[in-house]
């Protein structure tokens, strides 16, 4: 399949607010993204022309924002609405090897849905992790440096060399990735063994570091994880905000080259065009 045939569903509900830049990141590379309201998939309040089916798309992207206000818990309401109406479609989508991306609020939704970390099966019944309130107890909008630790499974990062440090900005209040206390060691080891850990927050030297380099206090500085197959991927920082160099915070010092976020979308589209 050509990249120009890859259809991307950029899914939104009320309060989703990073869909435009997500949409543009796929569009700029020649793919066919579409901003789709969840109601268009469930068929509520829409005309026949507006109705869509998840299976029509090759990539599902959940953008950032504050879906449904993030009341209750970040991403919980969006996830509940999807789970109640689209569970089967979602499982089929993932089973067929189609990539799913969740950024920021999208990551929170994937965790609430049970699509990540998906320790057993495609979608767990209850969440196996949580994105808790930042240690600073504040919303943190700041540049963060991510070291790629994934050894090759994740289809969204194949074009990023291992150990490379990318500047991908964060902007969230609930991004502290945590696992259940009693199983934490076991889960971390499993994630490691399965090559599910994709990025860690580091300082400019590439070392694991505390606040502000790690903006939220996440377990083991983990910024992003994928499922065992590497097709479902979620992270707190926003690659779609740094598609171009000139949206890096320090680009006037280093103006040349693409933005560090571009490679995420290139990787996913390459995978989709070759494997689907």
């Amino acid at each position: 399949m050509k990249i120009s045939q890859v259809k991307v569903c950029v899914l939104r509900i009320e309060g989703t607010n990073c869909e435009e830049e997500m949409f543009l990141s796929f569009k700029r590379l020649g793919a066919k993204p579409e901003k789709v309201h969840l109601k268009q998939l469930t068929g509520t309040d829409v005309t026949p022309e507006e109705k869509r089916s998840l299976s029509d798309y090759h990539i599902l992207a959940l953008p950032g924002g504050f879906s449904a206000g993030d009341y209750v818990r970040a991403g919980a309401i969006f996830a509940a609405r999807m789970k109640s109406r689209l569970s089967e479609d979602l499982v089929d989508f993932v089973k067929s090897g189609k990539p799913v991306l969740g950024i920021c609020n999208g990551f929170q939704i994937l965790v609430e849905l049970g699509l990540l970390p998906a320790m057993s099966g495609v979608m767990s019944d209850v969440p196996e992790a949580v994105l808790g309130t930042n240690d600073s107890a504040r919303f943190e909008c700041r540049p963060t440096l991510l070291k790629k630790v994934n050894r090759g499974s994740c289809v969204f990062t194949t074009k990023i060399p291992v150990d490379k440090i990318s500047m991908i900005p964060s902007a969230h209040a609930e991004g502290k990735l945590m696992f259940s206390m009693e199983n934490q060691t076991k889960i971390l080891k499993e994630l490691e063994d399965n090559d599910q850990i994709v990025f860690k927050y580091v300082d400019p030297e590439g070392s694991i570091a505390g606040y502000p380099w790690c903006p939220n206090g996440a377990t083991d500085n983990i910024a992003g994880i994928c499922n065992r197959e590497g097709t479902v991927f979620g992270m707190m920082p926003h690659p779609e905000r740094v598609f171009f160099r000139y949206s890096h915070p320090d680009w006037t010092r280093n103006p040349d080259g693409p933005g560090d976020g571009r490679a995420f979308f290139e990787s996913a589209l390459e995978y989709a065009s070759k494997k689907l």
Partner: peptide, 13 residues
């Protein structure tokens, strides 16, 4: 400043 998202929409260059 860091409590406000100053780059959502990715237009803040």
């Amino acid at each position: 400043i860091r409590q406000y998202d100053h780059e959502v929409r990715a237009n803040t260059v």
